[in-house]
Amino acid sequence: MTTNGTLVALDKVTRLYRMGDVEVQALRQVSTTIQEGEFVAVMGSSGSGKSTLMNILGCLDRPTSGRYLLWERDVSRLGRADLAEIRNQTLGFVFQNFNLLARTSALENVELPLIYGGLASRKRHRRATEALQRVGLGDRMDHHPNQLSGGQQQRVAIARAIVSDPRLILADEPTGNLDSRTTAEIMGLFAELNQAKMTIVLVTHEVDVAAYASRILWMKDGQVVLDQPHTPSTPLVLSHPDGDQDPGRPEPPSPPDRSTDGSIASLAAQQAHT
């Protein structure tokens, strides 16, 4: 994998939520880096902090403490307007429920980030057309979301994510609402984008989906308990997460039983049990 620079650097990032009198630590001193060109899958049970991590990576939220360097810029203390500009210029989002504007054509949906980027109409039109062609929807540009299948809608959303040529794509369970055949199509598209040097961070529950990634982060109780490289498109095998055996902390996910297949699938199964 080409790693020609650090894109994301998290340094002891903590995020606290206050719910009445109770303080919830959604992220606890998470430190990690993501290199350009990586394809990271973030896994973990619900409540493990992976959504909070995605929100902070996506500049939708700010850490309570710690630093977040995105493309060598400290974004952890920026205001709402500056964060909006960073999201517009540097990031692309893909959501589980697509989040396309209804009664608006695919082309105009894809143009949306460029409108806020201040691009002129003709330029917007050209780049949105290119992005739609890239995701294989060159012939559906005038269709409204309700005239498109789920997979096609997600392709429009991906086109929207890449139209402003971002540094990082953040996908939050992008295949959660899709059947397995469409999932494979969409993941193929992500893999294609990654091969074209696009950095992708993806949250998923599904092992099959995570298997497309080049690196797996497993989260539990607001911490990264497992960080392992992976060769894309090979079965996912999980190694024992070293150096995280602090007895004062909650148990990391029990390492997969070496007597069984040792894949992350069994880990996921255990998680589902507890």
Binding site: A81, A84, E85, R87, N88, L101, Y116, S164
Partner: peptide, 16 residues
């Protein structure tokens, strides 16, 4: 509300 959230996510500033 969701449309507003999406517009913000793709780069709409609060003033927009």
């Amino acid at each position: 509300t969701r449309e507003i959230g999406l517009r913000m996510a793709v780069g709409a500033r609060p003033t927009d």
